[in-house]
């Protein structure tokens, strides 16, 4: 018995192509590859052939089996894929996932953390102190004279009641974070390197750029041989880390009672790059922080021996930095705590 392999192969191709679902395809498979299928019959027939015919016929059957097997496999994949696609149970994967929402740290906290961590990486410790202070720590020890205007009720909030432990001591809300310098220096000997973040208070009428409560970060480095050039170096590293390596900076002489020499640090305006715009008041520079070498009177006030130590100190306003960095135009936004403001950071 002989087979017309060409015709059979063509038939099988057609049947496989026509099979529209898995069930029909399975029937086709059984017809050809099943135990009683066409190929089984072909192999059975092979045994009856002569020695000369066997190899040639065998090759032809094998080829036929290969073609059918492959076609069925391919068709099976197509049918499965189509069936998956047609399925009505497909998830709409574009619907948002469900998660426990993570909250947002306040932008001022984030700013404080960023600044403190730059200094921590340089070896500074972060310290804190009370908001209710004595006149000595907030003024006298910082070389601010008795009759200085900043001691007036126009510039500092005073408490109604004196210190309960010493009725002669007037208490106030610290107008700067500097009194913490005094507290720490009184307790510890140099070398000292620390930064102090915290709230400060001044009786300013509230507007877009003034608040009676705001935040400062103060820094102090005291050792035996701290120089003005160290101050420049330290703050250059800090400001480049905070605002980017491309910023330009300048140190401008200024006055603070507790430092001498004193300086203010400006950075090139991040909006106009120094050309002058409305943000920098056409100056091209933004005032960013105050600094200086610790005044000997301050060391005297904390009881350090005369001439033994030198130090550098610096301070900055957290709100100002955050406003510049994030383009916030009104200081009141920080304390309004509108959900839609908080969640932007």
């Amino acid at each position: 018995m002989t087979f017309d392999y060409e015709t059979e192969e063509q038939n099988s191709r057609r049947k496989i192509a026509e099979a529209a679902d898995a069930k029909t395809l399975e029937a086709v498979r059984v017809e050809y590859l099943g135990r009683k299928g066409m190929l089984a019959a072909m192999y059975a027939n092979l045994a009856t052939l002569s020695k000369e015919q066997k190899p040639k016929e065998g090759q032809r059957i094998n080829k036929f089996r290969g073609v059918v097997t492959q076609l069925i496999e391919e068709k099976k994949k197509t049918i499965t894929a189509k069936a998956r696609q047609d399925s009505q149970k497909q998830l709409d994967v574009t619907i948002p996932g469900v998660a426990r929402l993570v909250g947002h740290a306040h932008v001022l906290t984030q700013t404080i953390d960023e600044i403190c961590s730059i200094f921590e990486q340089m070896g500074f410790a972060v310290q804190e102190g009370p908001e209710i202070e004595t006149e000595f720590n907030n003024f006298t020890a910082l070389n601010i004279p008795e009759d200085h205007p900043s001691r007036d009720g126009f510039d500092t909030f005073y408490l109604k009641k004196p210190d309960p432990t010493d009725k002669k001591v007037n208490l106030l809300l610290r107008s700067q974070t500097s009194p913490v310098q005094i507290r720490i220096m009184k307790e510890h000997k140099p070398p000292l390197a620390f930064v102090v973040p915290g709230k400060v208070y001044r009786p300013d009428a509230v507007d877009a750029s003034h608040s009676f409560m705001f935040h400062q970060i103060e820094g102090l480095l005291v050792d035996k041989d701290v120089k003005f050039s160290d101050l420049k170096g330290l703050l250059t590293v800090f400001l480049k880390r905070l605002f980017g390596r491309e910023i330009k900076m300048r140190f401008r002489p200024h006055f603070f009672p507790f430092t001498e020499p004193s300086a203010e640090v400006d950075i090139s305006c991040y909006i106009c790059g120094g050309k002058g715009c409305s943000v920098c008041g056409r100056k091209g520079w933004l005032e960013i922080m105050g600094c200086g070498m610790v005044h000997p009177q301050v060391f005297k006030a904390v009881g350090y021996p005369k001439g033994k130590y030198t130090g550098l100190a610096f301070g900055l306003g957290v709100e100002r930095i955050a406003m510049l960095k994030h383009g916030i135009h009104d200081i009141r936004l920080f304390f309004e705590n509108d959900n839609r403001f908080l969640e932007q950071f």
Binding site: G123, F124, D223
Partner: peptide, 10 residues
């Protein structure tokens, strides 16, 4: 000039 301070461990 500008220099970088030595910050001692505390």
């Amino acid at each position: 000039p500008l220099s970088f301070p030595l910050i001692k461990a505390s």
